[in-house]
């Protein structure tokens, strides 16, 4: 089947043999966008997070047939936006990334949180990132980064 997607603002078409192919694999292999990562492949770690029609999803759990006709924002696309830049600066300043494996997913989840709640408190940030696992930072520095991104990006998140 032919699947149509708008990925990071660009219209793309992919041929897939099987509609159950995962959105994650299409993004990484067919489109060559490797920002979204496979950690667990079971919805537990959030490394594969993307926005599907503006909503945060684990792309390892979405069969491509369900995404046909949708908008997808990947970590690469987020990085190009002013919001993504504010997040990247905040993660850098607060040392929110160490090995970096979780970071693209963390930023997607952070963006999704800030889009629905532009001034979250610490507890709301912890809940917003609760589907994202980090083996390195101990989370506190990531929380600081999101607080900073909320502060610095005032007005950006709408």
């Amino acid at each position: 089947m032919t699947v149509k997607l708008t990925v990071n603002g660009e219209e793309r078409q992919v041929e897939v043999k099987d509609g159950t192919r995962r959105l994650l694999d299409v993004i990484r292999e067919d489109l060559g966008l490797t920002g979204a990562k496979e950690g667990c492949g079971e919805g537990e770690c959030g490394a594969c997070s993307v926005l599907l029609n503006g909503q945060l999803v684990n792309s390892c759990l979405v069969p491509i047939a369900q995404a046909d006709g949708s908008r997808v924002l990947t970590p690469e696309g987020l990085a190009q936006t002013p919001e993504g830049q504010v997040l990247a600066e905040a993660f850098t300043e607060c040392h929110g990334a160490q090995c970096g494996f979780c970071t693209p997913g963390m930023m997607m989840a952070s963006a999704a949180l800030l889009y629905r709640n532009s001034q979250p408190n610490e507890q709301e940030i912890r809940e917003g990132l609760s589907g994202n696992i980090c083996r390195c930072t101990g989370y506190d520095m990531i929380i600081d980064a999101v607080l900073m991104a909320a502060q610095k990006g005032r007005g950006l998140w709408g």
Binding site: D18, D25, E38, E42, G43, C60, V62, P63
Partner: peptide
């Protein structure tokens, strides 16, 4: 698919495998 994709999961880097039509 949050139950089905996990239940029918194959190896990392691969899509799920279903015996039935979906």
């Amino acid at each position: 698919g949050t139950d089905l994709m996990v239940r029918h999961r194959a190896k990392n880097g691969m899509g799920p495998s279903f015996q039935k039509s979906l």
